[in-house]
Design a protein around this nucleic acid. Sequence first.
DNA 1: AACCCAATCAACCGCATGGTA
DNA 2: ATACCATGCGGTTGATTGGGT
Length: 230
Amino acid sequence: MVEMDSWGVSETEWRKGPWTPEEDKLLAQYVTQNGEGRWSSVARCAGLNRNAKSCRLRWVNYLRPGLKRGHITPQEEGIIIELHALWGNKWSTIARYLPGRTDNEIKNYWRTHFKKRRKASEKQDRRKILLREEKNQVEAISNERVLFEEKEKHDADSIMELENEMLPTMYEDFVSCPDTVPIDSYLWGGLWNQQLNNCSKMAIQNQSNTANSCEPDAINMYSNSGGYIY
DNA sequence: AACCCAATCAACCGCATGGTA
DNA sequence: ATACCATGCGGTTGATTGGGT
């Protein structure tokens, strides 16, 4: 089955892809002799195996006399920017104000340069976001650190208070009856050990004074451990 | 020298619109 | 009124090219 395109011709048999110099010559000759328009007949009569759309596009964008070649000038770029701001993607309208330039050319130019700028701006945006995130992270870490230090200080104060309150009592309990006090209760670190160290001297002194007032093993355990209770 | 990637350009495709039979 | 054809337009794609690694 041969499908018909919007130009009323069968699509499947037409040549596609880049135009050869021979095809260009045939098309240019035909259009020069017969004028623009009636592209269906151009396609049929010029001896080209191309559809009407393809012929028109090739003529309009490449073969038509008066087309400018080369880069878009800064002046032209200015006009494009201005007119695009005015009309948006109306490429053929914009092209009317740039003699020798085709809508396709302007469209490609805009897409290339606009895309480049958009990419650059996206890159800049991403960089800004990263910097902001980095800053937030630093702030968060800093805040966490401040909170942690405050908490540590608070905990240390609490422990100090607690120890100051409890140690004398605990030590008394320990000295008077070490078996009833769980050994874990004494795993409190340096302050407790320091306190206990001071007290132990008194205890040893007491022990020598009142020989059987407390169990000697606990004190020995402390003394043998180099000041720490395990 | 070989490969990769981005930029560029030419051409295609689908849709909209206008003319006319 | 409407169906069909011709044309134009904008978006997209694919090939080529040039620069960087």
